[in-house]
Amino acid sequence: MTVKSDTLIEFENHLQTSLRPVNPDARFVTHLRDRLVIPPVTVYEEEPDPERVLAAIGLALLVLFGGLITGLGLLTLKRAIFK
């Protein structure tokens, strides 16, 4: 067992009164809490409008079939002329 001398106890007391807790800046504490606790904002992509999707598909099919019919028509016409 260690027996402390008076001066060592006094030195301990000196440290006790000298080394005291400090308070962190309240703004820092709040700001850091917000950064830790508030989840980051997630940006979701807007879901496409089903009506617009159908319209786009319809337009694409129209262009496709229109082109096909025009092509076939031109081909038939060519064959009729150069027969």
């Binding site: 080394l19 962190p24 809490r33 508030i38």
Partner: peptide, 27 residues
């Protein structure tokens, strides 16, 4: 659970800050 972590943060932030403050010497 971020709120639970927030509670832990509030409990220990002062103590951790103090420890680091005395080890580094500047705020």
């Amino acid at each position: 659970d971020v709120e639970a972590f927030g509670q832990l943060y509030e409990r220990y932030v002062g103590r951790i800050y103090n420890y680091i403050y005395y080890r580094t010497g500047n705020a």
